[in-house]
């Protein structure tokens, strides 16, 4: 075992961030805590998307179907069937996994853009189903389900601090789970498949089942995030199943840096927090400004913020600081 001091030395920035997040409820008001909760939920959604796109090279345009299904499971069971929350959790996981298996087995016969198109079609089918008037007695049709009863101890309005800690723990837990998976022997095979699928097969890996496996894992993570989202907003509307959700995940992953784990989390912060302020400053025209910022980010950080910084960690800035400190040292001596 390494001594505690060196363990701390390697990780102090992360521990500092975690400490700040833990202490945040003491400084932030309800509105900002709510914003943070949304960031945490979106971050897990983006993380699950990155497991597919960034680590396994699978481009899906239908990821919202997992997120939305989690939300609708919560809505249908808590509101419609009045189940207790602890019984809903395994159903969310099972739904995400089952959809992952189904989507994987049906659509993984095709690759790349064709796969993306079929996942888009899948998601649209579920989106249209959720909004259909025939299912209105159960799903609420295009209005969705509102006023989902959330247990009083974790009420997103009255007990926002509790809800904040639940979502923070959820993100931290999912982050470490994703990290374990990525660094496991299985995770390395997935990276190999991303790099060269045909070669991975000729050295003896059954590419198909590895891909199904990661779609299942990613689907479960996204469904859990969707479930928490439904608890926070106390609703599940067709919007959570729409293609806009998938694009959110795509943007967060690309902005943060695909193929990194902290990237999508950072992407979620950028998109949600920036979106909030831009809407304040520019009113309904904020997506226009956001679009320009997105173009600039992609130009200056072609591998995402985290990916680009890892490749060339602000070389110019670092050299400038070094020169400055050297100059100061010479003057002092």
């Amino acid at each position: 075992m390494q001594p505690l001091s060196s363990w701390l030395k390697a990780r102090w920035p992360w521990l500092a961030v975690l400490a700040c997040l833990t202490l945040a409820p003491a400084f932030l008001n309800k509105f900002y805590l709510g914003l943070m909760v949304q960031v945490f939920i979106l971050a897990v959604f983006a993380l699950s998307y990155d497991l597919l796109m960034g680590y396994s090279g699978i481009l899906s345009f239908g990821h919202a179907m997992f997120f939305g299904s989690g939300a609708y499971v919560v809505g249908l069971l808590l509101k419609g069937a009045a189940w207790p929350l602890y019984a809903v959790l395994p159903v969310i996981i099972a739904t995400g996994a089952l959809m992952g298996v189904l989507v994987g087995i049906v659509t993984l016969r095709v690759r790349g853009v064709y796969f993306a198109m079929i996942t888009l079609a899948f998601a649209e089918v579920i989106y249209i189903l959720s909004a259909s008037s025939q299912l209105r007695p159960w799903t609420g049709g295009d209005e969705g389900l509102h006023g989902i009863p959330v247990p009083a101890w974790m009420s997103p309005t009255a007990e926002r601090v509790t809800f904040y800690y639940i979502s923070l723990s959820f993100l931290v837990l999912m982050y470490f789970l994703a990290r374990r998976i990525v660094n496991s022997p299985t995770g390395r095979v997935l990276i190999a498949i991303r790099e060269n699928e045909a070669r991975a097969a000729t050295i003896g890996y059954n590419v198909f089942w590895y891909k199904v496996l990661i779609i299942v894992i990613s689907g479960v993570l996204a469904a859990l995030a969707g479930g928490l989202n439904a608890l926070y907003f106390r609703n599940a509307t067709p919007e959570v199943l729409g293609v806009g959700r998938t694009i959110d995940a795509l943007l967060m992953t690309i902005i943060g840096g695909m193929g990194t784990l902290i990237g999508p989390v950072l992407g979620a912060v950028v998109i949600r927090v920036l979106g909030n302020y831009l809407a304040d400053w520019f009113g309904p025209r904020w997506p226009l400004v956001f679009g320009l910022i997105f173009v600039a980010l992609v130009m200056f950080f072609p591998w995402g913020i985290v990916g680009t910084l890892r490749q060339r960690p602000l070389r110019g800035l670092a050299q400038w600081i070094k020169r400055l400190s050297r100059g100061a040292g010479q003057k002092a001596s």
């Binding site: 374990r180 496991s184 022997p185 299985t186 995770g187 095979v189 190999a192 890996y205 496996l213």
Partner: peptide, 21 residues
């Protein structure tokens, strides 16, 4: 290493670190 790993039985150990093998 990936080619060598394909001969073993550890490919689906999702929660262990690959460096442990």
């Amino acid at each position: 290493r990936l080619a060598a790993q394909s001969r073993g039985r550890d490919n689906f150990k999702l929660l262990s670190d690959f460096r442990a093998f």
